[in-house]
């Protein structure tokens, strides 16, 4: 079986003019299975957004192939279908707001797809509720705060219900609850609707919630595996300018100091459970 999204031996450079080019990817390979939830990590400028843009034909490779559900992104006639299949939330929400009223902006995608008006209404309301922007549905997008714009952009994609979504740092401007809400929504879209998710982020604990983590470094893939396995490699990640979730970091430090902690710890809850065995019960317990 071939993968849902496939980058095969892709080389890509931004061509500024006749003489100047910025090479980003060289013989790059990545395949994403249908229904997977893949987080992409990597230092600033390593090529994450470039990979995202290759996935929905905003950019095409100079050599190698990108296939979306079997469709070559280089073929002009595939373009419309590819854009319907893979939808994207960009890094800067200002770039993707199209309408002058929030709810029209969210409705724009499904309208373009020719979805029934009633169904559009339902999807738009639901999507705005999912991101906590329903109360501001009649506002003008350009007058919203940075984080609010980001939420509108995410609602737009939820309303589209494409087969695959690519989110490029969707939570960079959000408050803690906003970040949790986005993660929850993305997990729901992935689990309940089988939507394939490619999730670019600089937050290690968001990546920890994916099924698979791809770590990029200078246009290459440095690590690729489950979050549990990838985040055990704290030295490799730190050398690449990245980090591991705080719970993982603390567990690794304690283990290196000889503490008997078992398993590959990712979350605060898991760590808390393990620490119970470490802390002295009698001396350390609060008398109630």
């Amino acid at each position: 079986m071939s993968a849902f999204i496939e980058l095969k031996d892709v080389s890509f450079a931004y061509e500024l003019d006749e003489t100047q080019r910025v090479p980003v990817l060289r013989h790059f390979n990545l395949s994403v299975e249908k229904g997977d939830f893949v987080a992409v990590l990597g230092h600033n400028g390593c090529g994450k957004s470039t990979v995202a843009k290759l996935c929905n034909a905003i950019e095409v490779p100079q050599s190698g192939t990108v296939l979306v559900n079997g469709m070559d992104t280089k073929e002009e006639e595939n373009l419309l279908e590819i854009r319907r299949t893979v939808d994207m939330v960009f890094q800067n929400p200002d770039n993707q707001i199209v309408a002058t009223i929030v709810e029209d902006d969210v409705a724009f995608g499904p309208e373009n797809l020719g979805v029934e008006p009633q169904e559009i209404r339902r999807r738009v309301d639901q999507a705005l509720k999912d991101v906590g922007m329903y109360d501001l549905r009649f506002s003008e997008p350009h007058k919203l705060s940075g984080g609010q714009k980001q939420r509108v952009a995410i609602a737009g994609i939820i309303a589209m219900q494409p087969a695959c979504i690519v989110l490029d740092e969707p939570t960079a401007m959000l408050d803690p609850r906003g970040r949790k809400d986005v993660m929850k929504t993305v997990r729901m879209l992935n689990r309940d609707f089988g939507i394939t998710v490619i999730y670019i982020t600089h937050y290690m604990d968001e990546a920890a919630e994916a099924n698979r983590v791809v770590v990029m470094h200078k246009g290459d893939i440095l690590l690729d595996g489950t979050p549990r396995d990838v985040f055990q490699q704290d030295d490799v990640l730190k050398k690449a300018g990245l980090d591991v979730p705080q719970a993982t970091e603390l567990s690794l430090q304690l283990r290196r100091a000889g503490a008997p902690l078992s398993g590959k710890i990712l979350t605060i809850d898991e760590l808390s459970l393990q620490l119970e065995a470490l802390l002295p019960r009698s001396a350390g317990r609060v008398e109630s």
Binding site: H43, N44, M173, G241, L242
Partner: peptide, 11 residues
């Protein structure tokens, strides 16, 4: 938000 969008080392 001087660190928004920066990688962990950048932050």
């Amino acid at each position: 938000e001087p660190c928004a969008g920066l990688d962990p080392r950048g932050r």
